[in-house]
């Protein structure tokens, strides 16, 4: 038994050290974000003696917090909504229809799942230019739909197999057309996989950096991440301001994490197993 308690203690120790490392940068950012520059350079570790909230109000205006969060939210919501709408329709139908054409379309979707974004960013940029969607929030959402449907189609395709066909047949006998059958009968049954897809896509779109960087040129349309990136470049070494903006940028995701932790973890595990 003694052996056991020692190993148990060791495990706790490792976990505790790990937890400190995991929290350390966040803690440092939060604690120092309310200090003045001078106070910071005396000691980063010490707790603040007074709360300098002006760092936050300053950062809040400089990253245009409300506006950039709104932009991020619009892009994420439209992107996720579009992916779910397009991919559920396609995934369902491809799963239910046999034949060569159906197989070919499905293959077309999954064939590109390994293509890295960096391999298409140059032509994608040209394409966005040619279609005049570059620089637009809605255009960016459209691009996210185009880039995100393949994975979602794949997940829906697999999930639909577990839904018995009898449901649709009886709905059709009751006089539903195909679209009614889908939206009234099938789609509600797809909720579990839809939640998984929505979560994975939210983490991707909300935190994405490179695509918005390439697509958005107008500062007023910047996402939260882009605004913070700009501030980091402009106010180099003004750490109290930078840290306050980093904390502000992290707050929305941490809140979402706090509320949806279970769904997020379930979604990741589920998405991984299916993918």
């Amino acid at each position: 038994m003694r052996n056991r308690s020692i190993s148990s203690l060791l495990i706790t120790l490792v976990l505790a050290i790990g937890a400190v490392v995991a929290v350390f940068p966040i803690y440092m950012a939060v604690v120092n974000s309310v200090k003045t520059q001078g106070e910071m350079f005396e000691s980063f570790i010490s707790l603040p003696t007074a709360f300098h909230w002006e760092n936050y109000s300053d950062a809040f205006t400089k990253i245009n917090m409300l506006n950039s969060s709104w932009n991020s939210a619009v892009i994420s919501i439209l992107g996720i909504g579009g992916i779910v709408f397009c991919a559920s329709l396609a995934g369902y139908k491809l799963s239910r229809t046999g034949g060569k054409l159906s197989g070919f379309i499905f293959f077309l979707f999954i064939a590109s799942m390994l293509v890295p974004f960096h391999s298409i960013m140059i032509p994608l940029n040209r394409m966005a230019n040619a279609l005049h969607v570059q620089g637009s929030t809605y255009g960016l959402a459209l691009i996210y739909i185009g880039l995100g449907v393949n994975m979602a189609v794949f997940l829906y395709h697999g999930f639909v197999k577990s839904i018995p066909r009898e449901l649709e047949e009886s709905a059709q006998m009751d006089g539903c057309n195909q679209f009614q059958t889908f939206f009234l009968i099938i789609f509600p049954l797809l909720v579990p996989i839809t939640v998984t897809i929505a979560i994975l896509d939210f983490l991707w779109i909300w935190n994405d950096f490179l695509l918005p960087l390439l697509m958005l040129t107008d500062v007023n349309k910047y996402t939260l991440i882009l605004s913070t990136n700009m501030l980091f470049g402009e106010y180099n070494k003004e750490w109290s301001l930078i840290l306050a903006s980093l904390v502000l940028t992290a707050i929305p995701v941490v809140l979402i994490y706090a509320f949806f932790q279970r769904f997020i973890m379930h979604g990741i595990a589920e998405g991984a197993v299916k993918g």
């Binding site: 396609a90 590109s112 185009g146 449907v149």
Partner: peptide
């Protein structure tokens, strides 16, 4: 009819996918 409904269901996804992923991949 089967083909038509297959295309109707897959068109929204397929069009956006083709424009923003498939064509850029091949173009690149």
């Amino acid at each position: 009819k089967t083909y038509l409904s297959l295309l109707a269901f897959t068109a929204p996804a397929l069009i956006l996918y083709a424009i923003f992923l498939l064509v850029p991949t091949i173009g690149g």
